[in-house]
Design a protein around this nucleic acid. Structure first.
Length: 93
DNA sequence: ATTCTGACTCCAG
DNA sequence: GCTGGAGCCAGAA
């Protein structure tokens, strides 16, 4: 199946929306082969129904800093300093 | 068509 | 652990 059947932007939104509370996913997970594109899509987002804060970098570091950290901690996401504990919080596929 | 840029990722040192 | 450089997709100049 060619991935072109579904626009990458749609795939990104779908995966982000499917991320349950208390867990996180990396940009690479929501947009395989084009992690930067995922970031671009999220940056344009204004829709509150999309939990953009659950998307973090592959190493657990946050793109949006303290603001994002507060939202994640409020949902029970395990942290290790300034970074998310990916070992426990990363959503298994 | 070429170049730059961006909420990124991977590999080497 | 960290830093730097190259690679990736899409859109704008």
């Amino acid at each position: 199946m060619p991935r072109s059947a579904v626009p990458r932007a749609a795939l990104v939104l779908e995966r982000v929306r499917a991320t349950p509370e208390g867990f996180v996913r990396s940009y690479g997970d929501v947009s395989p082969g084009a992690p930067r594109f995922a970031g671009m899509v999220l940056s344009e987002l204004t829709d509150e129904s999309v939990p953009w804060h659950r998307i973090v970098r592959a190493d657990g570091s946050l793109a949006k800093g303290a603001r994002q950290r507060a939202l994640l901690e409020a949902e029970g996401v395990p942290f290790r300093g300034e970074r998310v504990d990916m070992r426990a919080a990363r959503l298994p596929d």
